[in-house]
């Protein structure tokens, strides 16, 4: 049995080597796009100084959920500043935003397709399993080969690692829209694209938003690992502290990741729900869950 060896690893290696050798131009374009996007967002977040950003974040928090969340956001951000991780935190946040953006751009259409086609759904499910369970470090190897050290391989590895819930939740959301409501759209002669836009997507929105939340959370967890390939940010400091066995730095950088994660989680959780001041502005009427039957003839 010594000879029995399935050369999957070799094949993967050959494929990646071939891609590196032949599609280099494509990847340098992608690398530039990722680098530029990251640079622009980082400039916006880090440029104005922590006070401005904290005030803006507090405002968003107030509008999306209310004053408690605003207070938590302020305290969290001040703690990050206090442990001298502001720049790293903004760097990681920029990376998360870029990765999340691309992950959603890829995963939501795939999710819609999967909802429409049972065949595609069956095909993509094992792919998603693969993407989600493959140890995240493994993505770094081809990413490094294709994009070289820097932010780009971190972003790419993050996109791949984080996109699976985007697909899954979008599919789930669209599939669980009340079939009769979709049928109503068809019965009144709407085209499939209008049904998607006017009925399926709006009704699937809360579920899709839960997916977006998951994508962001996974992105953040990947950020630390991305630090290994020179993506910098909080991940860079975590890796640095690991190498030096520096507890103090490790705890501070780790805490900053937790704080950013909590803020983003609460924020994205509020999307698609009616909470905070924003919802109050928008609401035309107070929402009543049910009206008693006897008001029927009112």
């Amino acid at each position: 049995m010594d000879e029995f060896r399935i050369p999957i690893g070799e094949v993967a290696d050959t494929v990646i080597t071939w891609i590196v050798n032949n599609l280099n131009a494509l990847f340098s374009v992608l690398r530039t796009i990722f680098d530029e996007m990251y640079g622009a967002i980082f400039a916006i977040l880090d440029g104005p100084g922590w006070i401005v950003i904290t005030i803006l974040a507090a405002l968003i928090a107030l509008l999306s959920r209310g004053w408690k969340f605003m207070l938590g956001t302020i305290i969290g951000l001040v703690v990050i500043v206090g442990v001298d991780q502001w720049e790293n935190a903004m760097s990681s946040l920029s990376l998360v935003l870029v990765a999340t953006f691309w992950a959603l751009v890829i995963s939501i259409p795939l999710g819609i397709w999967a909802a429409k086609s049972d065949t595609f759904s069956a095909l993509i499910r094992p792919v998603l399993d693969f993407l989600q369970t493959m140890p995240a470090f493994v993505y770094l190897i081809p990413a490094l080969l294709l994009f070289r050290v820097g932010v780009a391989p971190g972003i790419v590895a993050t996109i791949i690692f984080a996109m699976a819930p985007g697909v899954r939740f979008t599919e789930l959301g669209i599939r669980s829209v009340d079939a009769e409501v979709v049928e109503a759209g068809q019965a009144f002669g709407s085209s499939p694209s209008r049904i998607l836009r006017q009925i399926q997507l709006p009704l699937a929105l809360p579920t899709i938003m839960a997916g977006v939340n998951q994508v962001i959370m996974l992105s953040l967890s990947m950020v630390v690992i991305a630090g290994m390939v020179g993506a910098g940010g909080l991940g860079g400091d975590v890796i640095k502290s690991l190498n030096r066995l520096d507890t103090a730095l490790g705890v501070e950088a780790g805490l900053a990741v937790v704080i950013i994660a909590m803020i983003l989680d609460r924020l994205t959780n509020a999307f698609g729900k009616h909470s905070g001041l924003f919802a109050k502005f928008r609401a035309r009427k107070p929402h009543v869950d049910s009206v008693p039957q006897d008001s029927m003839n009112a």
Partner: peptide, 23 residues
């Protein structure tokens, strides 16, 4: 067929099938 549904036949559903996100 869609045109026929828009102009000739409309439908009322058992569970109403109203769009819950619209007035």
């Amino acid at each position: 067929l869609r045109e026929a549904r828009r102009t000739k036949i409309s439908m009322v559903f058992q569970h109403f099938a109203l769009l819950p996100h619209r007035t």
